[in-house]
Design a protein around this nucleic acid. Structure first.
Length: 593
RNA sequence: GGGCACGUAGCUCAGCCCGGAGAGAGCGUCGGACUUCUAAUCCGACGGUCGCGGGUUCGAAUCCCGUCGUGCCCGCCA
């Protein structure tokens, strides 16, 4: 609704200014501050005051009078308020919102006929996912969800770095050390089991004597050469380790849940010759140079002073070279590509984009978006060094605290819905995991986070449970009223769509809630355009506040007649909208708490 | 040294892309509201030189320049 209103206001203002003989380049449309009773406003009068030779308020009055609301959908009263032109929506705006927001698909935008591949996480398969890396799947999954809702055909990819030195070290260590040389695994799962070999191998390399280390390095190098040459036996050796660790990591990520349509292996681009072909094409470009036996690209034209090595002096490819082949493959299969990366990858991403252009691609089809590191109060997290908090530990602890919370409330519950043990467990899981996801996704990715248990797992205010509680309240009211529960198509006499108008919703709290609900599709649009899912999180908070104000002031079940019917419809609309918004964030919407 | 990001209330953060209406939340502190649709809620009070200095503008947290602080990165790692 909001998107349509905004377009209508643009047309109405533009036409009015045209009639007055004023320029229409900048309409100054904005959302008024809190406390102003208007949905949209324009500050254009400031800019036209000079031209008109009068004060802004006079111009604003002139413009307001020149707008004819009748000709534009959803545009109601237009009035000057000091130097501003305030726009109030017509009744139809609220009527249509009340109807549309009860559609389970509310907030899904029209199909754009455009495909996007979202690559995220892509953590090296070296061990369990830790909290530092968890920002990637949480943000990445939400970005994919938002793009999907915004009408793109989305594919979620995990790029598996199975060709680098890390994997060669890992494979050697796995084949060399025995169970009796290793500590007990922290969990009974492949990633926890195998990471011990990786850590043992790295520790060995750091402390081994010169001669011993050289022998090992020779072995590691032979594995890397085997991969580069497309040697089947080497693939099988490395693959055994990669498959095992990745299986465990997928289990962790699946708990969030973050799932992928496809795991794309780096070695694929070695085996099919596309990485080698990229090297050949780059060598022929005007930007290629030979330096100390290696091949580099001069990217000065892209503002990157350092030469970018794409072929080692021993003739082997580097990670970025293979990533070029990877991205050309993406371009061949999708219209756009989005990659979610840690901020340490910024230079790499710039080099990648420049090299893609040299190869003749439109690098504008690739958007890289970055997130800052998650640190512990005492420092960074590293799989190799075995420092950091595992994602599994964080989720377990969060669920444990949530369960404690649910159980402590059982005695004082007003609602007599007799939660079973299964209910308690379900709620604990929904709230516990939701709290972690929400805490991460609600912040701008560019800002660094210091992970603190108590803060991440605060179940009050500005948190997932705060929003989830609103959903549960909606469900409680609708359930009490005999409305169908979510996901069923059974018609309801009380909340039947189409027959309820918004005219019975006249209190400020009801109007404010409707106005917030109307904005949801615009939030999806904005979040998708900016790849900024935290905007959806901010929105869920605004929606929750508006709902709680309504809840406080407007009794639903004890209301009568048209008021009751309209309020039930409003609650149904709020429930659908909050559920849809939470689902974009990957946060569960509990029906009771 | 160079590049990129970040700096808003005691703490954690929105707002910045696209400049406009006394700068908004939450946590914490203090004071209120459960015989009423779930109090994981709500209401009120206290709390801010939007890092600092310039510039552009009728108007700057928002745009530009400089500066300080923090983080990340800087050719044969990924």
């Amino acid at each position: 609704m909001f998107l349509a209103l905004r377009r209508a206001v643009e047309a109405a203002l533009s036409d009015a200014l045209g009639d007055l003989g004023l320029p229409t380049a900048d309409l100054g449309i904005e959302e008024p501050p809190e406390g102003v009773d208007a949905v949209l406003a324009s500050s254009v009068a400031f800019r036209l005051a000079g031209e008109r030779g009068t004060a802004p308020p006079a111009v604003a009055a002139e413009i307001a009078a020149a707008v004819d609301p009748a000709g534009y959908e959803y545009v109601g009263d237009v009035e000057a308020a000091g130097p501003y032109v305030n726009i109030h929506p017509a009744d139809a705006y609220y009527d249509d919102t009340l109807a549309a927001a009860r559609d389970p698909e509310y907030g899904r935008l029209d199909d754009r006929g455009e495909s996007v591949v979202v690559e995220h996480t892509s953590a090296n398969p070296t061990g369990p996912v830790h909290v530092g890396r968890a920002r990637n799947p949480i943000v990445g999954d939400a970005i994919a969800n938002v793009l999907d809702a915004a009408g793109y055909a989305v594919a979620r990819h995990y790029y598996v770095n199975d060709a680098g030195r890390q994997m060669a070290v890992f494979t050697w260590a796995y084949e060399t050390f025995g169970e009796n040389e290793l500590p007990e695994p922290e969990r009974d799962r492949a990633d926890y089991d195998l990471v011990r070999y990786y850590q043992k191998g790295n520790a060995f390399l750091e402390t081994a004597a010169e001669a011993e280390r050289e022998a090992v390095e020779a072995e590691i190098e032979s594995i890397m050469r085997g991969l580069e040459a497309g040697d089947e036996e080497t693939y099988e050796r490395v693959g055994a380790v990669v498959d095992g660790v990745l299986g465990g990591m997928r289990a962790s990520l699946g708990r969030l849940p973050a799932e992928f349509d496809r795991f794309v292996r780096e070695t694929r681009f070695l085996r099919d010759g596309s990485a080698a072909a990229v090297v050949e094409r780059l060598r022929e470009s005007d930007h290629a140079e030979r330096e100390d036996g290696a091949w580099v690209l001069d990217l000065a034209d892209w503002g990157i002073e350092k030469p970018f090595v794409f072929l080692r002096s021993d003739g082997t490819t580097l990670y970025t070279t293979r990533d070029l082949a990877h991205h050309e493959w993406k371009f061949a299969n999708f219209d756009r590509a989005v990659t979610v990366l840690g901020e340490d990858q910024k230079l790499h991403a710039d080099q990648l984009a420049a090299a893609l252009e040299i190869l003749g691609n439109d690098a504008g089809r690739l958007t890289s978006t970055f997130y800052s590191w998650v640190n512990l109060p005492e420092g960074g997290m590293s799989t190799r060094e075995g420092t950091g908090v595992d994602l599994d530990d964080l989720l377990d602890e969060s669920i444990r605290r949530a369960r404690e919370e649910v159980e402590s409330r059982l005695d004082t519950r007003i609602r007599d819905d007799d939660l079973t043990d299964e209910d308690v467990e379900r709620i604990a899981r929904q709230v516990g995991i939701g709290a972690v996801r929400y805490d991460v996704v609600s912040k701008q990715p560019a800002k660094a986070i210091t992970f603190e248990w108590d803060r991440a797992l605060d179940f009050e205010a500005q948190s997932a449970p705060y929003v989830q509680y609103v959903h549960a309240r909606c469900c409680g009211i609708l359930d009490e009223a005999g409305a169908p529960s979510e996901g069923t198509d059974a018609p309801s006499t009380e909340t039947d769509a189409g027959t309820v108008g918004a005219n019975a919703l006249g209190t400020p709290e009801e109007r404010a809630l409707l106005a917030v609900l109307a904005r949801y599709p615009a939030v999806v649009e904005h979040a998708a355009a900016e790849l900024a899912p935290h905007r959806v999180a901010t929105y869920t908070r605004e929606l929750s506040e508006a709902f709680n104000a309504f809840y406080r002031e407007c009794p639903v079940l004890s209301a009568e007649g048209e008021t009751r019917r309209a309020r039930l419809a409003l609650v149904a609309a709020a429930r659908t909208t909050v559920a849809n918004a939470l689902s974009l964030l990957g946060v569960a919407a509990p029906e009771s708490m």
